[in-house]
Deep mutational scan, measured.
Amino acid sequence: HNLTITQGKLFFHYNPKLCLSEIHKMEEVSGTKGRQERNDIALKTNGDQASCENELLKFSYIRTSFDKILLRWEPYWPPDFRDLLGFMLFYKEAPYQNVTEFDGQDACGSNSWTVVDIDPPLRSNDPKSQNHPGWLMRGLKPWTQYAIFVKTLVTFSDERRTYGAKSDIIYVQTDATNPSVPLDPISVSNSSSQIILKWKPPSDPNGNITHYLVFWERQAEDSELFELDYCLKGLKLPSRTWSPPFESEDSQKHNQSEYEDSAGECCSCPKTDSQILKELEESSFRKTFEDYLHNVVFVPRKTSSGTGAEDPRPSRKRRSLGDVGNVTVAVPTVAAFPNTSSTSVPTSPEEHRPFEKVVNKESLVISGLRHFTGYRIELQACNQDTPEERCSVAAYVSARTMPEAKADDIVGPVTHEIFENNVVHLMWQEPKEPNGLIVLYEVSYRRYGDEELHLCVSRKHFALERGCRLRGLSPGNYSVRIRATSLAGNGSWTEPTYFYVTDYLDVPSNIA
C-alpha cells in the first residue's frame, strides 16, 4: 500500500525493539523526510534493546553428524571492536523451508527459537588472519532439518551509529543413524509349514526405512522333555500350542467401542483428552525405555581390526524358502538304536541362519518350516543398504507352526516275539517326523474274553527296548493296539495285532 503524509511529521519514542533503520525507511515511504526535528525521533529510546544489523554474515563451514552440527561463519568486528559482546545463534526444527525470524513471537518477546549466546573469538592483530567464530550444536535429532541463523550482539553506541551483522536463515539436516526397533511384532501360524509375521514401523526411523531383515531359527525343545518319565503317576503330560491366527481386521481397528449394538453396526467412541494424553505418555515412556535398553543392555560386537582377528559373527547367506525346513542338525536320541526319531534339535552355532529381506511392506510369510516346531524370529529395521547396512537392534518374537495331521501315527506293522515265561516283546517304529517329539506310547492289549488293559511306555523305555515287553501273560489269544502321544496330543491307534500265548508248562520236552 502507498502511504503519503502531505502535512505533519513523524514522532517515535520509547520503541526499544524498533531499529532506527526501520524508522528511516518509514520517513522515505511516507514522504516526511526532512520535516522531523532532532528530538522527534529519539536516538536513545528507539532500538536500544534490539540488534540492528546492516551487514550480512556468511557461514564459512558446515559439518553434520547424526546428532551434531558444527558451524563456522566469517569474522565480524565493528569499528570499535570492544562493542562486540558476542553472537546469538538461533535454531529450531523446520520440516519445511518457510521459516521466518519472527515465527511464534508474542507480545512478551518470546519466540519459538532456541538461542545460544556465543563469546567472540580472540581478536588477531592481523586483519587478514582473524579467527572464524563458530559453535557445535549438540543433542539434535537424527535425520531432522533445522533452520539456523546467527547475528551479532553489540553494545549501545553513544554516537548512535547503527552497526551489526546478521546471516540469512539456512537449512541444515542432520545425518541418518540406526533406527529404533520395529514396533509390535506379531507372529502367527496359518499352516503346519508357515508363519505369518506382521509389525509396525519404528517410532524413530532416523532416516528413510529402506528394508527390513527377518531372521528365523528353529528352537530346540526343553531338555526336561527328553529326561522326564511322563508315565509316572502324578506327572502331567506336557503340551505345546501353536500360535493362533490373526483376529479379523475389524476387531483390530483402534479407537473402536468394545460393545456392539445388537441391531447392527455401531460407531466408534472418540477417545477423551485424558485417554489420548495417557497414550502419549505411555508411548514416550516406551521410547525412553527402549533407548535405555539399547544403550545399557546391548553391547556392540567388536569388529575385526587390522591384526587379522576374525569377526566372530557368522556370515549372512541367503537361502531359498524351500530350504528352511531342514535348518537344524538332527541327532538321534540314543545312538545305539537307529530307529528312534531325530527330534532332539541342538543347533550348531556355526550354522548360517536363513533370512529374508523385506522391502516396502511390514509383513512376511515364512514358508518351508517344520510342522509343530518353535521358531525364534528376529526382526531388524534398516535405513541404508549400501555401502553397508545400517540397521536397528533386533526385536524378537516366537511362534510355533501348526501340527501336521497323521504325523504322530505309527507307520509300519507292530511285530512281536514270544519268549519263555510268557513274555512277549512288542516292537514298532517311532514316527519319523512327529509333531514336536514323542513323549510316550500307549499300549492297549486284551486277552479274548477279558477286559482291555493299558500300559504306558516312556520315551526312554522305548529307546532301550525298541518297544516294550509284556510279562506274566496268561495263555490265550491276544490283540494289541499302540498309539503315540506327542507334544500336540495323541496320534491314531494302530491296526490290531494278534498273537497267541501258550502255557509254557505244557511245552513238550526233548528229553527222552
Rank of each mutant, 00 (worst) to 15 (best):
S203N: 15
D204L: 15
P205R: 13
P205F: 14
N206K: 02
N206M: 04
N206D: 02
G207P: 02
N208S: 06
N208L: 09
N208T: 03
I209G: 15
T210Y: 02
H211S: 08
H211A: 09
H211M: 01
L213F: 03
V214A: 05
F215A: 13
R218L: 13
R218M: 15
R218I: 12
E221L: 14
D222G: 09
D222S: 08
S223A: 14
E224N: 15
E224H: 15
E224G: 15
L225S: 04
E227K: 06
E227P: 07
L228P: 01
L228D: 13
G234Y: 04
G234L: 06
L235T: 05
K236Y: 07
L237H: 15
L237I: 14
L237Y: 06
L237Q: 06
S239A: 09
R240V: 13
R240H: 14
R240G: 14
T241R: 14
T241S: 05
T241A: 09
W242L: 04
W242G: 04
S243G: 10
S243W: 12
P244N: 13
P244G: 15
P244E: 13
P245N: 07
P245K: 06
F246K: 11
E249Q: 12
D250W: 04
S251F: 06
S251L: 13
S251G: 13
H254E: 05
Q256S: 09
Q256K: 11
E258D: 10
E258L: 11
E258N: 15
Y259H: 05
S262D: 14
A263L: 12
A263M: 12
G264L: 11
E265A: 14
C266I: 07
S268M: 12
K271G: 03
K271L: 07
T272I: 01
D273P: 15
S274F: 09
S274Y: 08
Q275M: 07
Q275S: 04
I276H: 07
L277C: 03
K278D: 06
K278P: 06
E281P: 04
E282Y: 04
E282I: 06
S283F: 10
S283R: 15
S284N: 03
F285D: 02
R286C: 05
K287N: 01
T288M: 08
F289S: 01
E290V: 01
E290I: 05
D291A: 03
D291V: 02
D291G: 05
Y292L: 03
Y292C: 01
H294N: 01
V297F: 03
F298N: 13
V299S: 03
V299L: 09
V299T: 02
P300N: 03
P300K: 11
P300F: 03
R301I: 03
R301V: 03
R301F: 03
K302Y: 07
S305T: 05
G306P: 14
T307S: 12
T307H: 01
A309N: 11
A309K: 13
E310R: 09
E310N: 13
E310I: 06
D311E: 14
R313F: 15
P314Y: 14
S315N: 14
K317H: 12
R318E: 11
R318S: 15
R319H: 09
L321C: 15
L321Q: 14
G322K: 12
V324E: 08
V324R: 03
V324Y: 00
V324A: 12
G325C: 15
G325S: 14
V327T: 10
V327Q: 11
V327L: 10
V329G: 12
P332T: 08
P332H: 14
P332K: 10
T333G: 13
T333Q: 12
T333N: 07
A336C: 14
N339H: 12
T340F: 11
T340D: 11
T340W: 14
S341Y: 00
S342H: 14
S342N: 12
S344K: 12
S344T: 11
T347R: 00
T347S: 12
E350R: 09
E351M: 11
R353T: 07
P354D: 15
P354H: 13
F355G: 11
K357F: 14
V359D: 00
K361V: 07
K361Y: 13
K361S: 10
K361G: 05
E362Q: 13
E362W: 13
V365K: 02
I366W: 05
I366G: 00
I366P: 00
S367D: 08
G368S: 10
L369C: 12
L369M: 09
L369D: 03
L369Y: 00
H371S: 12
H371P: 12
F372L: 12
F372P: 01
T373Q: 04
Y375S: 01
Y375H: 11
R376D: 06
R376T: 10
I377N: 03
Q380K: 04
C382F: 00
N383K: 00
N383E: 01
Q384F: 12
D385N: 09
D385M: 09
P387G: 15
P387R: 07
E388D: 05
E389A: 07
R390C: 09
R390Y: 09
R390M: 06
S392N: 04
S392A: 03
Y396W: 15
V397R: 13
S398H: 13
S398P: 08
A399G: 10
A399R: 15
T401E: 01
P403Q: 04
A405K: 12
K406W: 09
D409V: 11
I410L: 11
V411I: 06
V414T: 03
T415R: 12
T415S: 07
T415P: 01
H416G: 05
H416T: 08
I418H: 04
F419V: 07
E420L: 09
E420G: 13
N421V: 08
N421M: 11
V423Y: 07
W428L: 03
Q429T: 15
Q429F: 14
E430S: 11
P431R: 01
P431C: 11
K432A: 11
K432H: 14
K432I: 13
G436L: 11
L437G: 13
I438K: 02
V439G: 12
L440R: 10
L440P: 01
Y441M: 02
Y441H: 03
E442W: 13
V443L: 09
V443P: 03
V443N: 00
Y445C: 03
Y445G: 00
Y445R: 03
Y448I: 13
Y448K: 12
G449P: 11
G449S: 12
D450K: 09
D450P: 07
L453M: 09
L453V: 03
H454P: 05
H454D: 12
L455C: 14
V457Q: 06
V457L: 14
H461Y: 07
H461K: 12
A463C: 10
A463F: 11
A463Y: 09
A463T: 12
L464M: 10
E465Q: 14
R466C: 10
G467Y: 15
G467L: 06
L470N: 03
L473P: 02
P475C: 09
P475V: 08
P475M: 07
P475G: 08
G476T: 01
G476K: 02
G476C: 00
N477G: 14
Y478R: 00
Y478P: 02
S479V: 08
S479Y: 07
R481A: 10
R481H: 01
R481L: 09
I482P: 01
R483G: 01
R483M: 11
R483Q: 06
A484L: 05
T485K: 09
T485S: 11
A488V: 13
G489L: 03
N490G: 13
N490D: 04
W493T: 06
W493V: 00
T494P: 01
E495T: 13
E495S: 14
P496R: 14
P496Y: 14
T497P: 01
T497H: 06
T497N: 07
Y498I: 12
F499T: 00
Y500L: 10
Y500I: 12
Y500N: 14
T502I: 05
D503G: 14
D503F: 05
Y504V: 09
Y504T: 01
P508S: 09
P508R: 15
S509L: 14
